[in-house]
C-alpha cells in the first residue's frame, strides 16, 4: 500500500470492516509496528523498517480521535483537553469550549456528556496539541444520523480552520464525500481506487442529478446507493 497526503488535505480511507483501514491508521500513529514499511511526514521519517527507524507515538506529534472517543473518565472536560497541551492554557481552552457552546460543561466528567459532546471534546483534545497530523478512526460512527450530518460539516470546517492535515478512516461513502478532499478505497489491505470522493464513489452510475451554482458554492445532488445525496463543493472543485 502506497499513498501520499497533501499538506492540509483531508484524506478519507474508505473500506469495509476487516479491510485493514484501522490497522493502517494505527501504523501511522505508531501504535502498531508493521513488518515492513516507510512513513515520512513533513520531511521527518517516522518509520523505515529497512533502517530500523520506528518513532514511538509520543514522538510523532499526532492527534488521534478514537471511535469511542477515549476520553479519560477520571478527568473533567477541561482536564481532558488540557492533558495534551505542552503549555497548559486554561483561558484558551475555556474560549474554545465557548466557541463550541460547551463552556458550561468544563467541569463535567465524560460520563455526563452526550455522544456529540464527547466527540467534540475528543477532537479539541487532539487539536490543542497542534499535531502535525490528525488521525480519525471512524469518529462519527457511534452517533445518530442527524447529529452525524452536523458533525461531518463541523469536522471539515474545523480541519480547514486549523489548517491541519487529516486522515480519517470510514466505511461510510456519504461521509467520505461530505468530509474528504480525497478518498482512497482499500480492500484486503490493498488500495483499489483513489481520487476526488464524489468522482471515485459514484463512477459508473447516472449520478449527477442536478448542479446548482450560486456566488461561492456549487451544490451537486448525486444518486448514491439508491438514495440522493446533496454535497456542497467549493467552486474550484468542478
Amino acid at each position: 500500500m502506497d499513498f501520499d497526503v497533501g499538506e492540509e488535505e483531508f484524506l478519507v480511507i474508505l473500506g469495509n470492516s476487516g479491510s485493514g483501514k484501522t490497522t493502517l491508521l494505527r501504523c501511522i500513529a505508531g501504535l502498531e509496528s508493521p513488518e515492513e514499511g516507510y512513513i515520512e511526514v513533513g520531511g521527518e521519517v517516522w518509520l523505515d523498517t529497512k533502517r530500523g527507524i520506528n518513532l514511538p507515538p509520543q514522538k510523532r506529534g499526532i492527534g488521534f480521535v478514537f471511535q469511542d472517543y477515549a476520553l479519560f473518565p477520571n478527568m473533567t472536560v477541561l482536564e481532558n483537553i488540557l492533558y495534551g497541551m505542552k503549555k497548559r492554557d486554561r483561558v484558551y481552552v475555556i474560549e474554545l469550549l465557548k466557541r463550541f457552546g460547551m463552556e458550561a460543561l468544563w467541569d463535567k466528567k465524560p460520563d455526563k456528556l452526550s455522544g456529540g459532546q464527547k466527540q467534540r471534546v475528543a477532537l479539541l483534545r487532539a487539536l490543542v496539541s497542534n499535531p502535525k497530523l490528525l488521525l480519525l478512526d471512524e469518529p462519527l460512527s457511534a452517533l445518530d444520523p442527524d447529529l452525524r450530518l452536523n458533525l461531518q460539516k463541523e469536522l471539515k470546517d474545523f480541519q480547514k480552520r486549523a489548517c491541519i492535515t487529516a486522515i480519517m478512516v470510514s466505511h461510510d461513502r456519504e461521509e467520505a464525500i461530505r468530509t474528504g478532499d480525497r478518498v482512497v478505497i482499500i480492500q484486503n489491505g490493498k488500495i483499489v481506487e483513489g481520487g476526488k470522493p464524489y468522482k471515485v464513489l459514484t463512477s459508473g452510475q447516472p449520478l449527477l442529478i442536478e448542479k446548482r451554482k450560486d456566488k461561492d458554492r456549487i451544490l451537486i445532488i448525486l444518486k448514491l446507493d439508491g438514495g440522493f445525496l446533496e454535497v456542497e463543493l467549493p467552486k474550484e472543485e468542478l
Binding site: 509520543q58 478514537f66 496539541s129
Partner: peptide
C-alpha cells in the same frame, strides 16, 4: 482500563 485511553495518552506525547 480501556486500551484506547492508554494509547490516546501516548499519542498526546505522554510517556
Amino acid at each position: 482500563v480501556s486500551r484506547n485511553i492508554i494509547e490516546v495518552s501516548w499519542t498526546l506525547g505522554k510517556s
